[in-house]
């Protein structure tokens, strides 16, 4: 039974369980690369300034866009499987936000595809973060650096720029 490649959920996820599920489908896997993104208690500033976070998405479009990214990863890299889990709703510092797992025969392609999927997701998947700080809640600004990360793969993105009016937090 093939499991969904993309899940958007409020519940937490378990890295070991996700890796086990992906590997169970395929005895040709020789390498597994994974990435877990977590909530920080700061945004380039004071430790502890971010006390909570809310993740919003665009139901339907979010899942479809990540599915398309995984298709693109399969075209670009010699990988055997991929899984993306992204949480939405209220989160706290130290909570897990996003999981990417990629399997391949050998490590190189899994490492690359994992990074590719994260770079793609950061700039092209419809999610929005809102942070709670002592000054109140604020929507997180997109970062030009994330567009630059995707550009390494030959894909142009102007998610944050050129009309980015956010103030850099670093």
């Amino acid at each position: 039974m093939t499991q969904p490649r993309v899940r958007i959920q409020t519940a937490d996820f378990d890295l070991s369980a996700e890796v086990a599920a992906l590997r169970a489908e395929d005895a040709g896997v020789g390498a597994v690369a994974s990435f877990v993104g977590t909530v920080r208690d700061r945004n380039g500033g004071t430790p502890g300034e971010v006390s909570a976070m809310e993740l919003e998405h665009y139901p339907g479009m979010t899942e479809a866009s990540i599915e398309a990214m995984i298709d693109e990863a399969h075209r670009r890299f010699d990988i055997r499987g991929a899984r993306v889990v992204h949480r939405v709703g209220p989160l706290l510092p130290r909570d897990q936000i996003v999981l990417v797992v990629v399997t391949s025969a050998h490590r190189g392609q899994a490492f690359q595809a994992c990074e590719f999927l994260m770079d793609y997701l950061k700039t092209q998947a419809p999610f929005w973060k809102k942070e709670t700080t002592p000054e109140g809640a604020r929507w997180v600004d997109a970062r030009v650096a994330d567009d630059a990360a995707l550009a390494r793969w030959g894909i142009a993105s102007d998610n944050a720029g050129p009309t980015d009016q956010g103030t850099a937090s670093k």
Partner: peptide, 10 residues
């Protein structure tokens, strides 16, 4: 047709 700010997931 949807309008939204730059995305900030991940």
């Amino acid at each position: 047709v949807a309008f939204f700010p730059p995305v900030t997931g991940g």
